[in-house]
Write a protein that binds this DNA or RNA. Sequence first.
DNA 1: TAGTGGTCTAGACCACTAT
DNA 2: TAGTGGTCTAGACCACTAG
Lengths: 244, 244
Amino acid sequence: MSSLLPVSNTALDRRALKHVQVREYVRGLVSGAAPGSPAPSERELVQQFGVARMTVRQAMDALVADGLLERIPGRGTFVARPKRSASRITGYTEEMTRRGMLAESQTLLARREHAGPGVARALGLTEGDSVIHWRRLRRADGVPMCIEDAYLNEILLPGFLQGGMPTSLYDLLTSRGLRPTWVEDSVSADRATAEEASLLEIEPQGIVMRHSRRALAREKIVEVSRGVFRADRFTLWVQLGQED
Amino acid sequence: MSSLLPVSNTALDRRALKHVQVREYVRGLVSGAAPGSPAPSERELVQQFGVARMTVRQAMDALVADGLLERIPGRGTFVARPKRSASRITGYTEEMTRRGMLAESQTLLARREHAGPGVARALGLTEGDSVIHWRRLRRADGVPMCIEDAYLNEILLPGFLQGGMPTSLYDLLTSRGLRPTWVEDSVSADRATAEEASLLEIEPQGIVMRHSRRALAREKIVEVSRGVFRADRFTLWVQLGQED
DNA sequence: TAGTGGTCTAGACCACTAT
DNA sequence: TAGTGGTCTAGACCACTAG
């Protein structure tokens, strides 16, 4: 089904596990291939790599579990068409960029505070513990879009306030290995307060969407935030996927 | 680690695959067990079932992939603590019940219509195709909460309008094997129209949240809906999870 | 040291698909 | 009939953990 390569091209590297080598070899073949195109058969890979079939199956199992390959009994193994997936967990900058808008932020406040009861509970800390409070006015294509208050667990982010504030919190969290892998969001609709209306440049009592988020990375709460969005310029989109 | 059972208690049923039998046996042991408690060791199961170790590993691999078990090299296999997962895909009835409220619905309209351009595109049909249009006023604990317009692909739901309308659309879809496994939602905030305000029993121009959904089952669009929620009584909650 | 999971071998038979 | 993936065997050696 696929052209046989000389063994020298797929020679085993003694330092790596065999099933990993087979897996990564097949992943390379498959990445970029059109959905439905055939992968090498298991017995073909047994020949190429000189390993047992169970070893090849272990490699292929991983790729099938990843959704890259699809097995069809009696026919072969094929490149799977990408499955519809759930929304990626993003912050404001990434989300607006994805929508083709220019994301800008203006820091209104960035300091260490003692956690009040609400923030402490949300961050899983004790009242009075040190937290980072970062308030920004966030624009999209130059127009005010959102006022965001983020509270961060300072223990997880030492030196955060010294480092010069980044544009994207999520980029920074990613670089520290703390990109959220689970979030709980709530969204409601309300009228803006006078201060909010002024900052967002909307009419007094104008409609806003209030967004709250608790974000976890490595089973720890790294971010708690509240965002107030102009309802006339913001629609929330969410995709949800479920197995079976 | 676990008490040995007489072989007769775990005798092999010739009609079922061995790895499935081992898997379901272990699943039974594990369900309800406290996180962290040990599962039988692989070699123990080899003895009990009289199968090869690779067969036991195949069974355990499935449970590990399901997130029920966790392997710790050198120590054993243990009941994993449940991982935080994404929101379950639900309809109104299920969601309100989950929140501890009584969900009731009043059908305002249920009929076959010819799809307009918007609905046709959303359902992946051609303009003029037959669709089911179902409009309901939905209450929670007796109070109006939402006006929902659902459009359904009639080809996927033959005889739908004849069957007596159910309370829960998602229960019906589930029973027909068409429970959505992927949805795309959008949520925005707005002022109610006069008709909406009247039905929802809120002040004219009161604030509402507009929710739209496209729902897929078996790679086909089964439901397209729009809901208008009273903003004073409804907050949207979403959990999102991501691997790594 | 005994027990665990991780990896790997070299076969085997089956049901199924395509030619 | 030849090839495929699905299942299964009966061993083996390794690194690691715990008493």
